[in-house]
């Protein structure tokens, strides 16, 4: 038990495509700078900074309550930190709002499913394209030419995502009736529909069995490789993290205690202590 138990459970192995098809990791696209977040007297995040580079897969790991989900919520403006800034493509924001984050190309999935339960799969994914739909209220009311053409154009984009995620059979099913694993896919599909530059995934594989995890890994890597989407994900399954991420950031009690390649982090003393207790 001297290192993180990578082999403790069956590996969700993924066959990488030839590295040639991967987008080259580029410059820093998103930077979190000295962020601190408090809820009343509780410190959720204390002075955390890290950078995300274009086209990379960055994993944020840490024990429960380490502030991982809060970090994602700060990045896309759901929580406003008391201190610190978010830098995105050379623009610095003291105050990020969800709408601004979304319109700049930051999309997000949720740990506890946050789908629109009363709507069908198609409609859920279509909401991901709402930002791009411009037809005015009158045009929609009468559904005259441009409004309908716009709907059809976006429907085509959504169908491509449905094909990609292999959920064709469930198109018109209200998502509330889908099994958990498929709901997770719809959640991913809704985020993809906005064609994001940065995709934040909050425990995309939580509660899945091995096959479902493998599928989800494949989707995540395919998105990264085909579209060059930068991915920031929170994950508890270390084998997944070690397999698919280019870099890992480790949080513990709201502080950053590690940052580096999976190999570096795996052998970092502070990280091992945090996971196994300092008495070791």
């Amino acid at each position: 038990m001297a290192s993180i138990p990578v082999q403790a459970e069956p590996r969700a192995t993924v066959e990488h495509e030839a590295p040639a098809s991967r987008h080259r990791i580029g410059p820093v696209i998103l930077a979190v700078e000295h962020v601190s977040l408090r809820f009343g007297g509780v410190k959720a995040i204390s002075d955390v900074s890290f950078e995300v580079r274009e086209h990379e897969v960055l994993a944020i790991i840490g024990p429960n309550g380490a502030g991982k989900s809060s970090m994602l919520n700060v990045i896309n403006g759901v929580y406003q930190p008391q201190q610190g800034t978010i830098r995105f493509r050379d623009r610095t924001f003291d105050l990020m709002t969800p709408h601004r984050a979304a319109s700049m190309g930051i999309a997000r999935t949720f740990q506890n499913l946050a789908l629109f339960k009363g709507m069908t799969v198609v409609d859920n994914i279509l909401t991901g394209r709402n930002l791009r739909m411009k037809a005015g209220i009158l045009a929609q009311a009468l559904r005259i030419g441009p409004a309908e053409r716009e709907e059809i154009r976006h429907r085509e984009a959504v169908e491509r995502i449905i094909d990609f995620l292999e959920i064709q059979a469930h198109r018109k099913t209200p998502v509330g009736r889908l099994p958990y694993g498929l709901q997770k896919r719809v959640d991913l599909g809704r985020a993809l529909a906005s064609e994001p530059d940065v995709l934040l995934l909050d425990e995309p594989m939580a509660g899945m069995n091995v096959e479902e995890k493998q599928d989800m890994c494949r989707f995540v890597l395919d998105v990264n490789e085909q579209y060059g989407t930068t991915i920031v994900l929170i994950e508890h399954d270390m084998s997944v993290v070690m397999d698919i991420s280019d870099r890992v950031v480790v949080l513990d009690y709201g502080r950053k205690i590690g940052d580096g390649t999976p190999d570096e982090v795996r052998h970092d003393k502070a990280v091992i202590d945090a996971y196994l207790g300092t008495t070791h």
């Binding site: 896309n76 759901v78 969800p98 709408h99 984050a101 979304a102 319109s103 999309a107 997000r108 949720f110 946050a114 789908l115 629109f116 339960k117 009363g118 709507m119 909401t127 991901g128 709402n130 930002l131 809704r190 985020a191 906005s194």
Partner: peptide
């Protein structure tokens, strides 16, 4: 259905 999620995708 889910106001926070709606905000996050830009509504």
């Amino acid at each position: 259905d889910m106001d926070v999620a709606a905000e996050v995708i830009g509504i």
